[in-house]
Each structure stands twice: as C-alpha cells, then as structure tokens.
Design a protein around this nucleic acid. Structure first.
Lengths: 347, 347
DNA sequence: CTGTTAGCGCCTTCAT
DNA sequence: ATGAAGGCGCTAACAG
C-alpha cells in the first residue's frame, strides 16, 4: 500500500478534470457545501484523496480577500502579564497586516462580571473572532454563548470558562500549575519541618482557586511535615500583598515556604526581603517579569511558574484564524505549557 | 505624532498611484531591485511608509507560485528525540503541502563528520533550504559554508556549528541547560553530602560537552559539599550506559546525584532501579519520552530537561521559509526554551 | 444540481 | 529607468 507521492503542482482544475466535473463542483465538495449529488461527491472525494490534494492556501486566501477582525478582551490595569500579552500582539503587527487581519484590544480595569458580560454583548456582529480573559461567572458564560450564537468565534485566554461553549481555551491547566508549585516548594525545602504560606489575588478567580487547590493537594499528600496556612488574599496588589506577607512572617517564625499565586509579587518579595529571612524561605511564584527575573537572580525567589505570554498571544490569533477559515487547529502547537523557570534557564 | 491607522484594504496599486509611478516600479522598490532612480525610490518609500503598507502575503505567494524544497539532515538510529522531530515534521504534512513546501528527511546512522560533510556536499542546488543536526567539526563547517555559497539557506538544528556561516541555530543553549541540571541536582539533594556522577554520550559532541561544562560550573561553585565524579561515556547506548552506571553505583556507595547528559536513559535508569537506591538518588536527565515520563511518575527521575521537538521542527521550517521569502525572522517565536519538566507539569 | 467566468493582489516578462 | 499586461489557483456570483 504505497502512499501516492503528492504531486505538489496539482490544482483544483486537475482534480476537476479527473473527476469529470467543473471547478465549481470541486469547490463545493471541498467545502462541504450542499447542492451536489452523493455520487458526484464521491467521485470528487476519490480524486482528491488519490492525490492527497490540498488547495493552495495562498490562492484561497487571496480569493476570499476579506479583512478579518479579532478582538482581545481583558482587564489589564497594572498587571504586567496582561501587558506582556498586549505587547506581543503588537509585535505581530507586520505579520497581521500582511494578512489583512485587524486585532483590536478591548481593555478595562474593572474587575466585575457584569461589566465584562456587557462588554461582550456589545461585540455582536463586529468581529470575526474574540479572545477573552474571562471571569468564570454565569453572566459571563451566557454572554459568551450569546456571542457565539451571533456567529462570532470565541476562545478563552489565560482563564477559562469551561461551562461555556467557547471553542478553545488558550492557557495552562491551573491545577497542574499549582501542583507543580507544590512539588517545587516541597522538594526545595527538603527535610526541614515548618509552615508554608499562600498569597493569592482572590479565591474568586478560577485560575487562582485551581492553583491553590493543586498546591494543597501535593503538599498534604506528599509533604506531611509541612503545615499549609490558609491562603491570604492580596487582590493582586503590591501594597496589600506586602502587608499580608509581613503579617504572616511575623506570626509564624517557622515559616519556610511561600507560594505567591497571582500578581503582587513585588509586594510579597519586599516583605520577605525586609524580614531578613529570604535565604531560609523557599519562595515560588508565577510569571516572568523584570521583578521576578531579578528576584531569581538574587536568590530571593527559587522558581517561577510561567505561561509564555508571546505564545499565548500568537496561539489565540492562530486558533481564531483557523476557526474563521475552517481549517484544523494544530493542537500540539497551540497547547500552552507550564514552564518552570529557575535562575539558569531564564529565556 | 500619530501613527496613521493602516487602511487594511490598500494595495500596491494605491501606492503606485500615490507615488505617481507604475505597479512594477513599486514592486522593484519593495524588493530592492535595481533600475530605479533614487528620487523615485524615495517617493515610493514615502508612500509605503505613510500608510505603513504591507503587500498581501497571500497574493505574493500565489504569484511566485514555486514549490519550495527543504531537507532535514540528521543521524537518527534509535535516538528517540530525533525520531520525535521527524514525527512532528510529518504531522505538518497538511500544512506544508497547502503551501507547496516539500520536506525531505535525509537520515543516517553513521556518526562520522566526513560522511556528514559528503552528504551536505551532495545537496548543492537540490534544495532551497537545509536544516542540519551538525557535528562541530572543521570538515562539517566547510561543507556548511560551501552549501551556503551554492545559494542554499542553512540552519543548524539541536547542535550548532557556531563557526560556520549558518543563518540561524534552532536549539537550546547547552551550557545553560547543563547549569539548569546542576541547579536542580544541587537543590533537590538539599543539605546532604555525597558524590554526583555524570553519564554522557560522548565528550566529542559539542552539546554534551557544553552541558557537562555548565553542570560542573554550578556544582563546584555553589554546592561544594557535593563531589562530582569524572563523566562516563556511554555513547548514548542503553547497554553500555547501564554497565557504566552500575559500576559507578557499586564503586561509590555515597552516590546521591546523577546527571544523564544524553540518551541511553533507559539503561541508566535500569541500573539505578536495580541498585535499590532510586529513592535516595537525585536523578536528572534530558528529553521527554515514554521512558522518562514513566520514570518521573515512578519517582526514579526527579526532573527532565526538555527542548520541545515539535517546536524545533516547526521553527526550523518557519525560519527556512522566512529566509527563502526574505521575510524577517520572528526571533522571539523561534527561540527554543529550556524546559524543566517534573512530574506535575508533563505536557 | 452543475458549469462559466470575473476577479482577488502581486510578480514577472516583455515593451518602451 | 519605467510601464503594460498576463497569469498564479481559488472563490463566489451568476447562468443554465
């Protein structure tokens, strides 16, 4: 059974001739449009498969020749990670405009499901695709589903709403990320006994909640000598996070592990450094920024869990594009990995 | 100074009209072809920049309409990592053939610079681009440079030849990878004292040598309580690696750390398991395969350093394609990261 | 149900 | 040094 070597210079016309039909009919079969007799469909399909034929992407693009519009909806504020995503999007400008793709960033600082839902509602009919950093809330879920019903392709980004009908989630599995943090903290602490603290943004955020869950899972099952304290909620703000961390450090002199689940890393780190106990505390957090880079180099942080913002920006665009063009999504390529960054493998 | 919003529906013709010249002249300027007066060039350039205009990629592709040929040259044999690269290449078949790109894999088991050089010599004029897993040897360097002189674009893959004129290296920095392994072994061992062994394929391989160097650097400077033994060379073979490891384990009862630099992981692991000392030995190696996955899950291995073979395959193709089309390379996208994989963040 | 045909925007050859 | 014009392979509107 030898695979026919695909002759790379075949065209639709050749297939048409071989199947004894016209160009238009082949096109119909290719795009599973109605109005072709089953027998004809089969003949065309056979001819296509016989040569493993693929229509030339460039020609299809050119002929369709429509400008494609995408929106990225997210709350940004001072969140460095979100800013990085936006900055990588604008790095793609050249690539995008050579394909007549327009990406609009719709940002807000408001952290409120109702507002997000209303924003999504306002997008009906205006975009071919929408990537949204969602809050997992019934109102948001409904807004996503409505948007999809209006004919817009929707993917979630960074934070998922699994109960919605979004076509894809571009981001990491947060339970696994939390477990990874747990393993790192546990293993790097080694045989010592003591307490471990968690500082999160809010347990209302699905991604934070999942990370906390995964972290606790690993610590309780595999590192019973470590006592995990109840998570503090620092709302991803530096000042508040610093206060909370300082308080934790003061109250627990046997604190030897610290997991910062969200942003606010700068505040947490300041408290750790000021306590003079940086070298005895294993400190793990998320996202690579100028701050966390420096903290890794100084040995204040021991590891950072990373989801590559550049990869996420590009993956979101590519997935939306594939959906618009009804092309297959390359799952392996678009999957976002949970990266562990330590001092020596910083990119 | 407001950036003009690029009107996404502009075409070459619009630029031509605005500059008061014909289509062909704009095209000449766009591709920096000769035969245009400097003044004209400037007028066209200005018009292009005024609108931040980019020619539509699809139209350019279609018009050029040539089949592009790439070769991947590597020694494969039983090396699972190389097999993974090939397998990811064939996953791209659909994508490639929709762009009339033909990728040919030229594999050999022979591990010999002369043979590799001769293979490269035989490629002159047959391909638009070549990705080669090179050996760092003067003969290979010359062969690469000759190939480039013959008009073929060349990138190195996985293992670099920095002294050649290759246009890009798709792979990780191996010194940093070795340092990462060193940090992991040192940190995961914790306060214990003892010996650390290294099993490599061959110190003649540049990537292995660099990893060993980075590993030693970190251990000697930051973990002085650990004594690093001289590297054993297992030629990436399972049986030999197993013997060597067993011997090391027998000779050093205080062996508590193990770094497997190349392949042959299965053999190394078998020796560790058979010794009954798996749980007390911190074992770090490279590349994620079915074997290393299982070893991580069973706790025999503690961490695996990974360079994503799928990413490498795609990056090599994209870089070669960009070179052929004289498009810019998206360095940020093509950079291969050093990933640390532990039990909980396995993809 | 099926076929014909006019573009899509750029590249390239051939004139001028 | 510059311009005119015919494709590249596919899509979509229109005819039959």
């Amino acid at each position: 059974m030898s695979r026919p070597t695909p002759n790379p210079t075949l065209t639709l016309k050749d297939i048409a001739r071989e199947a004894g039909v016209s160009l238009a009919t082949v096109d119909r079969v290719l795009h599973q449009r109605p109005g072709v007799r089953p027998g004809t469909v089969k003949r065309v399909r056979d001819a296509i498969e016989r040569h493993d034929f693929r229509p030339l992407a460039a020609a299809a693009d050119l002929a369709r020749g429509r400008t494609i519009r995408f929106a990225f909806v997210m709350r940004v504020g001072s969140n460095l990670f979100m800013q990085q995503i936006l900055s990588h999007l604008s790095d793609m400008k050249g690539w995008l405009s050579a394909r007549r793709i327009v990406v609009e960033a719709i940002t807000t600082d408001i952290f409120n499901p109702e507002t997000l839902a209303r924003t999504l509602d306002s997008l009906h009919g205006r975009f071919d695709g929408v990537a949204v950093v969602a809050l997992d809330h019934p109102g948001v879920r409904t807004a996503i589903d409505d948007l999809i019903d209006s004919g817009t392709h929707v993917v979630t980004l960074v934070s998922d709403v699994p109960s919605s009908r979004r076509l894809h989630y571009v981001g990491i599995e947060n339970i696994a990320a939390g477990r990874t943090a747990g393993t790192l903290v546990g293993r790097l602490i080694g045989p010592r006994k003591g307490k471990v603290a968690i500082v999160a943004g809010s347990r209302g955020l699905r991604d934070h909640a999942e990370r906390i869950f995964g972290f606790g899972q690993v610590l309780s099952s595999e590192f019973p000598q470590l006592e995990v304290l109840a998570p503090a909620e620092g709302r991803d703000e530096d000042n508040l996070s610093e206060d909370l961390t300082a308080r934790l450090l003061g109250a627990h002199l046997d604190l030897i592990g610290l997991y910062n689940v969200g942003a606010g890393t700068q505040g947490v780190a300041k408290a750790v450094i000021d306590s003079g106990r940086a070298s005895e505390i294993v400190f793990v957090g998320h996202d690579l920024t100028n701050f966390t880079r420096r903290l890794l180099l100084r040995g204040v942080m021991d590891a950072v869990i990373v989801q590559d913002p550049g990869h996420e920006a590009r993956a979101a665009v590519r997935v939306l594009l594939a959906l618009v063009r009804r092309e297959p999504i390359l799952l392996e390529q678009e999957k976002i990995r949970i990266d562990i960054i330590m001092r020596d493998n910083m990119p």
